[in-house]
Design a protein around this nucleic acid. Structure first.
Lengths: 262, 262
DNA sequence: ATCTATTGTGTCATATTTATACAATAAACT
DNA sequence: AGTTTATTGTATAAATATGACACAATAGAT
């Protein structure tokens, strides 16, 4: 049986990884004017979690994060930053309910060997990375432990494994702070977008309304946007311009910072 | 012999710690109008390194960082923040010269048991914490592996162990960025200080001159400073006021941010 | 009494931010 | 075809912040 064989293979591969460290990716997307997260749904029991993985014995931590992101989304070389390392002793038991449910299930069902169980359930220090991606470019794929890999709106998050809820909160804080000095918002949008799209995105991240005309002025002054043809929306009003962002200027600002705040 | 006995004890205690993770503290102080770092000098061979340590099996990572800081400085509950985790595969060999020198010495001298040597020289993922302290309140104490614990000016750093130079650079970046949205500079000064002291500190951190009267205006507007009596400096000029900073207002700004930049 | 270096404060010219106004316009409605 | 509607691009006035500089006050040296 393929399932059983690959399970065995997976259990063997564990030994090629650092035993007490993991990586969790908080992958942000933007859809329906809402921030969305790419989450995994566990096989055999109803729990959601962040896409994560282990670090190869000869693999840099950053490489591991890139690999994990690539495996789940099909995307390479997108915005991906380390943001915090979670090293509490009780992190695996943070979400008590989900934890006991999971443990009960696993021990009862004997999906994993006792050695694997031991490996999986011991103390882990996890390092969080956050990614900003254009959700339309992704092809979400579950990993070996999960049966679903879906975009979930930030405002309707399900119960999450362990401390993954906290990890997401911390990632959000970082995202909001960095929005003030890096032009990172653009990574979440498709190639061409209207000024309204961009503003709505900023509002979704910052969770507060921004003044339209001032927002437009500020963005244009960054000198990062290229204006294109108008977009006929079909609505009964003036058609907005489409914009794309200038890659070189963007790279420059990424390094130098934009030094403004909302 | 006490040295030998405590060495044995130390080697035994290693087993009570997580095997692949460490913590390094970048402890900033301010003396002679310069930023200073608290560094350790290794026993038996001429290498300096950051104060670091391992994480107890039942110890939160933050606890471990606090403990390490306390052990080296005697200080508790001061400004201490995690800033980055270094997980490259080659970090132990980054400073080639210092590394080979150290390895040669250690293998030749047989100070440690082969088991300890194995433990010490395998791949480690280290998490950096940075601390801001009033150096006058510290009582630097070497750890078990070192014979000196001294304040070293940032501008005359010696050759450092492994990637500790890079860790310091990253800590500095974080310090500079956070200076723009957190009132953290104050942690480095004694209780009472003049406006010039504060300005010189900011200049030391940012590595550029700031305009005196504008700096004063900006700081006073934060509404974080309490003005005290004048300080008779003995110099042939107008005596400056002493200031201290308001703890509550400071806590508020720490959480809210101050949203300005130089 | 005069001089010197530094301090506290004020001011002026420039940016930047906030709030608001208004003409332009794509499509719906009469 | 003319009118209406919602949204867009741009302008502007007032409030606020910033950078550069001026100047009187003053502790101690001369």
């Amino acid at each position: 049986m393929t399932e059983k064989k690959s399970l065995l293979q997976w259990e063997l591969s564990i030994a090629d990884h650092l035993p007490g460290n993991s990586i969790d990716c908080v992958i942000f997307g933007y859809k329906n004017q809402e921030l969305q997260l790419l989450l995994l749904h566990w096989k055999h029991h109803d729990t959601w979690s962040l896409p994560g993985g282990f670090i190869g014995i000869n693999e840099d931590m950053d490489e591991a994060a890139n690999r994990i992101l690539l495996e789940r989304t099909g995307l390479d070389s997108v915005f991906l930053n380390q943001f915090y390392t979670f090293g509490g002793t009780k992190r695996s038991k943070m979400n008590e309910a989900a934890y006991t449910k999971r443990m009960e299930f696993l021990t009862k069902s004997k999906i994993y060997s006792s050695k694997t169980m031991e490996w999986l359930t011991k103390r882990f220090i996890t390092t969080g990375y956050f990614a900003l991606v254009d959700h339309e470019k992704t092809t979400p794929k579950p990993d070996f432990l999960s049966d679903k890999c879906d975009w979930i709106a930030l405002h309707s998050l399900p119960e999450l494994l362990m401390d993954h809820g906290e990890i997401i909160q911390k990632a959000l804080e970082h995202l909001r702070v960095r929005l003030n000095y890096l032009p990172i918002g653009f990574s979440l949008l498709p190639k061409k977008f209207t000024m309204q799209d961009l503003q709505k995105l900023y509002e979704a991240i910052l969770q507060r309304p921004l003044e339209r005309s001032n927002f437009q002025r500020k963005m244009l002054k960054l000198d990062i946007l290229t204006r294109h043809e108008k977009q006929m929306t079909g609505a009964a009003n003036k058609a907005p311009f489409l914009y794309s962002f200038n890659k070189e200027r963007y790279e420059l600002l990424l390094r130098k910072g934009i030094g403004f705040s909302f």
